[in-house]
């Protein structure tokens, strides 16, 4: 399509537009690189193995982020453990069992679309009222993880759903024509074929959960000790960055280093998701 209009026309307005568009793109790219460069520049000096494993001291100004990483992983694990089975089941149901578009299917779709847009602070309020108070979990890793599970369900379900609906219909028909049950078709053909999309959706969900702060402040809390159970409060990495930069004078160094760790984790997860999606689009179906 570019070739089609690739020849820059000589007249003034066209040239101005070209300059404006390249300028806009450069501005966006420049801001992105400035942000990334700043984190790298200030954060790289502090990041070391010790930083990753040591406990924070002096409210995080010195020491490391060991317990914080542990809490982050625990919160993430709770979120995935709750969201993956529920999300997988819902996505399968939406893509394979509701072709007519029942009332429940419309309800589920509406719920997912709205949940995807609900502000994270509102999830925080909900998580606090429901998981922490009503279910009596208090400020805990379990409450935080379950709140995050509600948040990542929409994005995960939509990826799995699109993965399943991209599986060629001829395999569905082939399986039905052989008298296979839906369960057998799912287990042997549809789910393996959609596996890359399922993993990509999982990665997107992890990315979203790792980045989350507002929903966790009032659910999993601030405590920066090593958690001993899922009912202990635990401070996530994103919350740690917030606390260091807002509530701890002189915490900027450690905040930079923590932010760098978080960004590197997210970039790695994003690359995995991209690769998986790319592989899925290329229809390289896994062989058992």
């Amino acid at each position: 399509m570019r070739e089609l209009i690739g020849k820059p026309a000589p007249d003034g307005p066209d040239l101005a537009l070209t300059i404006a568009i390249w300028g806009g793109a450069a501005l966006v790219a420049g801001s992105f690189l400035a942000l990334l460069g700043d984190l790298l520049w200030h954060g790289a000096a502090r990041v070391s193995w010790d930083f990753l494993v040591m406990a924070p001291e002096h409210a995080g100004k010195t020491g490391g982020i060991g317990p914080i990483l542990a809490s982050t992983v625990a919160i993430l694990a709770v979120a995935l453990l709750a969201a993956l089975p529920l999300g997988l089941a819902t996505a399968i149901w939406l893509s394979n069992f509701t072709r007519g578009g029942s009332l429940l299917a419309r309800q589920v779709n509406l719920s997912l679309d709205v949940l995807a847009g609900v502000p994270s602070i509102v999830f925080g309020l909900f998580g606090n009222a429901f998981f922490s108070v009503v279910l009596g979990m208090g400020f805990s890793i379990a409450a935080g993880g379950l709140t995050l599970a509600c948040m990542i369900l929409p994005i995960f379900i939509r990826s799995v759903e699109s993965g399943l609906s991209a599986v060629p219909d001829e395999w569905r028909r082939g399986a039905a024509a052989l008298g296979l049950s839906q369960a057998a078709a799912l287990r042997h053909i549809l789910l393996p074929a959609a596996a890359p999309a399922i993993s990509a959706g999982m990665m997107l969900g992890i990315g979203r959960a790792l980045a989350e702060t507002a929903a966790l402040i009032f659910t999993s809390g601030y405590v920066d000790r090593m958690p001993e159970s899922l009912l202990d409060s635990g401070r996530a990495l994103a919350v740690h960055i917030y606390d260091l930069s807002m509530n701890v004078t002189g915490g900027d160094q450690a905040a930079y280093a923590s932010a760098l760790v978080l960004i590197v984790l997210l970039l790695a997860i994003n690359s995995v998701a991209q690769t998986l999606t790319g592989r899925f689009l290329a229809r390289r179906i896994s062989q058992p």
């Binding site: 529920l86 999300g87 089941a89 589920v108 509406l110 719920s111 997912l112 429901f130 839906q182």
Partner: peptide, 29 residues
Amino acid sequence: WPADQRLAVSLGLAAALVAAILGLVVAFL
């Protein structure tokens, strides 16, 4: 054969639970 119906029902229950989350959020707010 009924295995498929059982599967449909249990998956439908999961979906109903997901639909209920929005209701729960609004209800608790």
